[in-house]
C-alpha cells in the first residue's frame, strides 16, 4: 500500500457535510445491524464474556467507505449501546472509553486498502488494535479504581481485553470476506471493496 493510497483512503468521504443520502442510509442500516448482531451470541467464553459479530457492520462500512464513515458509524453505535440493555458502566470516563471511543476506533480499519485475504486480515487487525487501545485504558481505570492494591494493573487490563478481542476479531475476520464479495456482486453500482 503506497502512502498516496493511504491518504486517498483517508480523504474518501472525509467531510460528513458532503455525504449523500445513500451513504447516510447505509450507515444508519449498518448501525442497526451492529445492534441486532450484538444481541446474537455466537459463542460464550469460558471466563464469562461472549463473542458477537457486532464489529462486522462497522468494519464493512470502514472498508467499503473509508475511515471517517467507519469512525462515525462506530461512534454512533457505541453511543447507542449505552442505552441498550446490557451496557456495563462503572465510571463516567469508562462509559466513554468502552463504548463510543472504542467502537469509533474500529473505523481505523478503513485506512487499509483491502485487495485480498492478506490486506483483509490487516484491516481487521488495525481496527481491532485501535479498539483494544481504548478498552485497555478503560481496563487500567477499572483495576486502579476497584483493586487499587493490585500490582501490574496494565498486565490484567491487557490480558483480559486480549482474551475476548482476539477471538472476536478472528471470528469476524473469518466471515468478513464472503460478505464483502457478496455485497460487491449484489450492489454493482456501489463502491467495490474487493478486487
Amino acid at each position: 500500500m503506497s502512502l498516496l493510497g493511504l491518504s486517498n483512503r483517508l480523504r474518501d468521504h472525509a467531510d460528513p457535510r458532503h455525504w449523500g443520502v445513500s451513504l447516510i442510509a447505509e450507515l444508519a442500516v449498518a448501525i442497526g445491524l451492529a445492534a441486532a448482531l450484538g444481541q446474537l451470541r455466537v459463542f460464550t467464553m469460558p471466563q464469562g464474556g461472549s463473542v458477537s459479530l457486532e464489529m462486522l457492520p462497522i468494519l464493512i462500512v470502514a472498508i467499503r467507505r473509508g475511515v471517517v464513515p467507519g469512525v462515525v458509524a462506530g461512534g454512533l453505535y457505541g453511543l447507542l449501546q449505552l442505552v441498550l440493555p446490557g451496557a456495563f458502566i462503572f465510571h463516567w470516563a469508562q462509559a466513554a472509553l468502552d463504548y463510543p471511543l472504542a467502537y469509533a476506533a474500529l473505523g481505523a480499519a478503513g485506512a487499509v486498502g483491502v485487495r485480498g485475504w492478506k490486506t483483509l486480515v490487516g484491516a481487521v487487525a488495525v481496527g481491532s488494535a485501535a479498539r483494544l487501545v481504548f478498552h485497555f485504558l478503560s481496563g487500567l481505570l477499572f483495576f486502579t479504581t476497584y483493586a487499587p492494591s493490585w500490582e501490574w494493573p496494565w498486565l490484567y487490563a491487557l490480558t483480559y481485553n486480549l482474551l475476548f478481542l482476539v477471538p472476536e476479531a478472528a471470528i469476524t475476520g473469518v466471515v468478513l470476506w464472503p460478505i464483502l464479495k457478496a455485497l460487491d456482486v449484489a450492489l454493482p453500482g456501489a463502491v467495490r471493496a474487493t478486487r
Binding site: 445513500s22 442510509a25 447505509e26 442500516v29 442497526g32 455466537v42 457492520p57 460478505i179 455485497l183
Partner: peptide, 26 residues
Amino acid sequence: PLRRARALVPVLVPLFVVSFRRADDL
C-alpha cells in the same frame, strides 16, 4: 467458535445483502 462462525456465513451473506439493498431503497 470458528466452526460456529463459518456456519453463520449462509445467514450473514443474505442478511447483509438484504440490509444494504434496503438502505438503497431507504
